[in-house]
Simulated assay, not measured.
Amino acid sequence: MNAMLPQSWVAVGRVTDIPRRGARVVKAPGGDIAVFRTGADEVYALRDRCPHGNGPLSNGIVHDRKVTCPLHGMVFDLTDGHSIGPDACQARTIPVRVVAGVIELGNPLYTETASA
């Protein structure tokens, strides 16, 4: 029951390491994580695989609080991972926070979120 485990955080870099409207990949035991920075300096994290076409979301185009998959153009909301459009699916989200300019991810071994 992962929900009962205490939250731990892993520092993965500074916000300024990621260009605005860009992404970086973080290697994690459960699979790569794409960490996104919006034009408004908000930071979000998703598993780096599109659930629809298996493309690397980190290579997608970031716009507002969304990312467009580079393989087939499906758009995902960075806040909750839900797709926008007729082919509903959800990218897995990872908890993220920024402390004094440092990006921290919820330990990806225990804090993965998505609806089944």
Rank of each mutant, 00 (worst) to 15 (best):
Q7D: 11
G31M: 06
D64K: 14
L105Q: 01
D41T: 01
T113E: 08
G101A: 07
V99R: 15
P29K: 11
N2G: 05
G85E: 09
P95Y: 03
I84F: 04
R24C: 07
A40N: 13
R14A: 03
F36C: 00
E42I: 02
I18Y: 02
G22P: 03
Q90L: 08
E104P: 00
Q90M: 13
V96T: 04
A45W: 02
N54D: 15
R47C: 07
G30W: 05
D17M: 07
A116Q: 13
N59M: 10
R49W: 11
R14W: 00
R97K: 15
G30K: 12
D87W: 09
A100H: 09
V10A: 04
T79V: 14
H82Y: 10
V15H: 06
E112L: 15
L105D: 00
L105N: 00
D41Y: 00
A91D: 05
V35C: 12
L78W: 09
G31N: 10
P51V: 06
I18C: 05
I33C: 07
V102W: 01
V96L: 05
H63K: 10
L71C: 07
E42V: 03
M4E: 15
A28V: 02
H63C: 10
V12N: 02
D87N: 14
D64Q: 14
D32G: 08
R21N: 15
L78F: 09
H52Y: 13
P70S: 13
V96E: 01
A100S: 14
V67F: 05
T111Y: 14
I33N: 04
A34M: 04
V67D: 04
C89Q: 07
L71F: 12
L5W: 05
T113A: 11
R24M: 12
D87K: 15
N2Q: 10
I33G: 03
N2D: 12
L71G: 04
D77W: 05
V12G: 02
T113N: 08
P56N: 15
M1Y: 11
N2W: 03
G73I: 12
R24S: 10
V99K: 14
V99G: 02
H63N: 12
G60T: 07
V43T: 02
L105R: 01
L5S: 14
Q90G: 08
F76A: 09
H63Q: 15
S8G: 11
V26Y: 03
R21V: 00
G39L: 09
Q90C: 13
H82S: 11
L5K: 13
R49E: 13
A23W: 00
A34D: 02
C69P: 08
A28F: 04
T111N: 12
